[in-house]
Design a protein around this nucleic acid. Structure first.
Lengths: 331, 331
DNA sequence: TTGAAGACGGCAAGCGTTTGCCCCATGGGC
DNA sequence: GCCCATGGGGCAAACGCTTGCCGTCTTCAA
């Protein structure tokens, strides 16, 4: 049916092993012979069968990419970048969506393990223990999780959160709500720690709200609590949450940023599209996707090598932050 | 290294073929034996090697999903739904991004062909001829393209466009700009045809602008032309284009919807997040992803069977449309 | 008691590649 | 003129699984 190495061998008058070498070990075959083989392959439209190759080399040429929610605007640019980089290295990528469930995440990795040379886990919800365990079985790189012995690319959201807080403090806010995301997310911890420090250093009051699902609905449900807290500003775990919050706050008759300043995280397009455009901590998402694939491929080639790269974030000030309404927010 | 069928056979004291059958042809093996095999497999942590299976069955258990631009908010919900449905049927999905380039699209399909049982092409930019050709080599289902002999799921954007136009006409608009998308997109033709009819039936004037890339930037660059055309309302090829248009129009000092009504297509989250929230034609994206996979799997199982399903669209009226400024727009 | 029909499961070939091993020719050094 | 090193390329096993074929054991009817 499909054209195989055997057909190419027949047509070019050499043994299959020569055909194979013509493709994968070019220096082992005479240039002239190789040309003949390549010509025959071209003519027949031969494409190597990756499954067969995988079977004998135990290298699949595939990568897995596991994300919590494809529809969350944080992920697509990362997926896109990862896929592009993989393609540049002649790898194909499997995508899987865990629906934010740790159980699914683990199952997905396990079911994928045999068919990929490695996987990148983006913002996993799994426990460190399980991830470390899995990394034993298959090369893994984790985005936004710091783990000993496992490669990772980290976006320095702590510094971003610090900048965000400083921005609010400069504007005059003294009572700030910090709306948490999923409890298992590494970024949640980072933000918590950074805001903690800042609060201590500047002697301001922090209201912690959460954990919450990182969605617009999450923002809706958390809004009342935030408003009731008396905070004049809020730093939300991501743009979606921030956006939901703004929506609900507006419904409640508050003006953003007049009555309530809101900062998101991600700089997803939501932040730009919404109104007011959200002040947000920009995450280097594309770089992360690109870097994760690089890192992964490196540890696929040199088994056991791990590395960590940290990417910078930055604060993007837009229209959702302003000084607090006069008098308010100062005790 | 990895545990294979052979290990399971040894441990459970049967032949490998029995192990194989215990998994894939359960009725051919005694229940008791099967239980023993399964227990051994469980104990050893056995996972079938899909590559090996693929080699002997020429079924990979993989699907390809090819989209123009993962970062375009139209796609992620579709990808998510497709992936979920594939997973439910125990398939894995390869994702690939063509960057809107037909050439890349073709190459991607070809390079994927050997490793998947079929592929879904979402809003392809390829010519009909090439697609039909490719469908010869590998089961294909095409989303938003009508093609004889190739399975497809179509979103009835024509009707949606008609509704949109009627909505504008009812509001009193008499001169409407229709901003086209990529020339190769099937939806472009559908919208053109529908708007054509409507215009004729109602005796209104249509200004066609485009084709344009379906992006925010596309909206920016096209805005001047639209404004200059004297139209009081515009139907854009998608939300992104509509959003870019609104942005630029606002910069030019126009009020949307006061001075210019704008309608998008897709009902991507951009439409909800932007301000004013966009009136838009809702595309049943998730259903399409789900349906495409179903259709594809059907034609994988029953080679040669093709089908077409058409999904309904609907108009969602939000804040970007209003009656034209008094007097204007009437000749 | 015998024979036939199932049920069960072993055997081995085959899927398309890769790769270690080995053979053959060629050419250069002595 | 002989030997050996070397390059080129054939041979066949192996990767892990499926599946057609066939032998063995039960079971049941005649």
């Amino acid at each position: 049916m499909a054209v195989t190495i055997k057909d190419v061998a027949r047509v070019s008058g050499v043994h299959v092993s020569t055909v194979s070498r013509a493709f994968s070990a070019t220096h082992l075959v005479n240039a002239e012979t190789r040309a003949r083989v390549l010509a025959a392959a071209e003519e027949l439209g031969y494409r190597p069968n990756r499954a067969a190759r995988a079977l004998s080399t135990s290298r699949t040429g595939n990568l897995g990419l596991i994300v919590a929610d494809i529809a969350n605007p944080f992920f697509p640019p990362l997926i896109k970048a990862a896929q592009a980089q993989a393609r540049a290295r002649d790898y194909h990528v499997f995508i899987a969506d865990t629906d934010e469930q740790a159980r699914v995440e683990e199952e997905l990795i396990r079911s994928m393990a045999k068919q990929v040379d490695g996987a990148v886990l983006v913002a996993p919800r799994l426990t460190n223990r399980v991830i470390t365990e899995l990394a034993q079985e298959i090369p893994l790189v984790v985005v936004n999780r710091r783990l000993r012995g496992v490669s990772g690319v980290l976006m320095d959201v702590g510094t971003g959160a610090r900048r965000a807080m400083e921005h609010l403090i400069e504007l005059g806010h003294r009572e700030i709500a910090v709306v948490g995301g999923p409890s298992r997310a590494w970024t949640s911890g980072e933000i918590e720690r950074a805001t903690e420090h800042i609060a201590r250093d500047h002697g301001i009051l922090i209201q912690r709200v959460g954990p919450n699902p990182p969605t617009e609905e999450g923002g809706h449900t958390v809004a009342d609590e935030v408003v009731a807290s008396g905070a004049t500003a809020v730093l939300a775990h991501n743009d979606l949450l921030a956006f939901g919050l703004v929506q609900r706050a507006t419904e409640l008759g508050l003006d953003v940023p007049g009555d309530l300043s809101v900062i998101g995280v991600d700089n997803s397009h939501v932040a730009r599209y919404s109104s007011p455009a959200l002040t947000t901590v920009a995450m280097p998402v594309a770089e992360a996707g690109h870097g994760a694939v690089d890192l992964l491929l490196r540890s696929v080639d040199a088994a056991g090598s791990t590395g960590t790269v940290t990417l910078e974030t930055s604060l993007i000030v837009r229209g959702s932050t302003a000084p607090p309404a006069s008098g308010e927010g100062l005790r």
